[in-house]
Design a binder for these strands. Structure first.
Lengths: 323, 323
DNA sequence: ATGAAAGCGCTAACAG
DNA sequence: CTGTTAGCGCTTTCAT
């Protein structure tokens, strides 16, 4: 590795001269600059970021804690985060919690050791269920700025970017009733999550709506099968993508016609529904925007250490395709 | 931020004593250790990683360059990388190239500034097509260890983890012929990629195999439609997951029965094929293992700076489901 | 216009 | 057992 010192020695100048020359300081004469620049080029000098970080006490790096990298929704958010961060000269370092409290805590503790300027996170299912917030409060004690996206702890006064889950579900149901649907069934695998609760409440605002909730695919299929065979269901609102796909496949297997006999709308992360056959009608969640907005909120907090906490709501949109 | 200095001052000892005490050195007396540990706990001292990195000249961080984060295959690899890295006490920092040469180059240049100990990468489609290797050679010049996964530049003598693309395709074709299939069609959207070439060659080893290749979904659909209507096709081998899904959907739309009339096997990244209806038969690529192996190769190179370059082949397996 | 020196937070060789 | 000192690579103030 070539250092400032190396260049300085070779040219018989001081380290500070080299440093200044490379940052194009007006204090340095044109000739010296030229000489130094040329040698730097030749020797392929690149500044050591770690040393710079240590000096500046900032890393231009954002830490991201993501619960599940196999979920296309989070992947899209990650993409939004990475793009927005890069656009602002920040890098992104990720830690995957696998929906567990322990991995989340480890990731956070790693991030709090000075390697990132701030943290973006969606809490794991486990932390949410246990309502574990100690590790979050430690972050705050260390004065490391952070923002939540998608999920959050109710009661914690922090920056967050969320989806209009309640309204989105309500709107989907309204769409159904406006289309003359009478027997709407809600299907959900998000029983235990806060966002699942919000969506459910939004959906059940209307009267006489039936619901199936479970965390197991088999259970969902079993119950759905029974309902479809014994009751008149003419519309299904799936509160998550998997439920949507399962519903679609089952409905078609039972030889109902989609969307003529049964219409389906699903909350969606995109990839499964996009290539389903027929293409699922979805509540589209604009995940990328969520990521970008989260970064914006964090950078704002990085500039001005103590702005009032903000909740940014990213509106989802109803996209009617083939179901 | 609490530093060693702070603790030292408060206890009227030297910084080095504190440092040694915290690393449980035998040079320090029990009482002093106790005192220091207690205060450290109380003040919530955590070592500053950046300073440690600067001293040690290592970061315990691996850089990953991934071409496309929306591709489930790469996501799985990423998961494998992150898990294996974490298991060995390394963190993971990612940069997404979006299949462009320029983003890949930027990512690499960022990584070469001292923030990672080594780099794992799959080159972008663009770099591969342009056969751009300058940026890679610069990494090498800077003596930053790196390994390729999935894709690589032919001719570059480096560590890499790859799939047995050629054999996997050949095996799938053999499976078809052994099942009595006579009119096999190969469908591919990987026309320009090295791995696409390998798979194609593997598939076309057998006699009389027809092939459709294009990068556009529309073109694939158009040609496939024509073939299915005008020729007798009783088996389709899709060289990538998207081709597989498109084929499945089209075949069913044309009311052929799957797998009775037309059997389909697809190279797969998992998520689309898993929830397709019926479930696609796949050439499963064990992406997670690829990631883990890549990390192992890199760590080996980190320990012993100049081992001979190794090519690790991860075998794929044929998984017959409903198509 | 250039250089000397201090310091970011930490570790480690060496002295006492 | 504890402290002093030097140094990782860089920036920045203050002399010169």
């Amino acid at each position: 590795m070539v250092t400032l010192k190396d260049l300085a020695k070779e040219l018989n100048v001081s380290v500070s001269t080299v440093s200044k020359a490379l940052s194009d300081s007006h204090e340095i004469s044109k000739e010296t600059k030229q000489k130094i620049l040329t040698l730097a080029q030749e020797k392929q000098y690149t500044p050591n970021n770690i040393a710079i970080n240590l000096r500046r006490k900032e890393t231009k790096t954002l830490g991201v804690i993501i619960p599940n990298i196999f979920n296309h929704f989070y992947t899209k958010i990650l993409y939004g985060i990475e793009s927005e961060a890069r656009k602002n000269g920040y890098k992104t370092i990720i830690s995957i919690s696998n929906e567990t409290f322990i991995a989340e805590k480890e990731g956070l503790s790693y991030f709090s050791n000075g390697c990132v300027d701030g943290v973006l996170m969606a809490p794991s299912e486990e932390s949410e269920m246990l309502n574990q917030t100690k590790h979050i409060l430690e972050l705050r004690k260390k004065e490391i700025p952070f923002v939540f996206f998608d999920r959050y702890f109710d009661g914690l006064d922090v920056d967050k970017v969320v989806i209009d889950d309640y309204d989105a579900a309500k709107n989907a149901i309204e769409y159904f009733t406006n289309s003359g649907k009478k027997n709407i069934l809600v299907v959900s695998m998000l029983k235990n999550l806060w966002i699942g609760k919000l969506r459910r409440e939004g959906a059940l605002t209307a009267e006489g709506i039936d619901i199936i909730e479970s965390e197991s695919e088999e259970e969902i299929e079993f119950q759905l099968n029974r309902k479809l065979l014994t009751q008149n269901v003419d519309a299904i609102l799936a509160l998550d993508e998997l439920s949507g796909i399962i519903s679609l496949n089952l409905v078609r297997t039972l030889t109902f016609e989609v969307p003529k006999d049964v219409s389906i709308i699903s909350f969606s992360q995109g990839i499964l529904s996009e290539y389903s056959h027929p293409k699922l009608s979805t509540v589209n969640q604009h995940a990328q925007l969520i990521g970008a907005n989260a970064v914006k909120l964090l950078l704002r907090r990085l500039k001005n250490r103590n702005p009032d906490p903000v909740t940014n709501v990213v509106k989802s949109t109803l996209e009617i395709h083939g179901t």
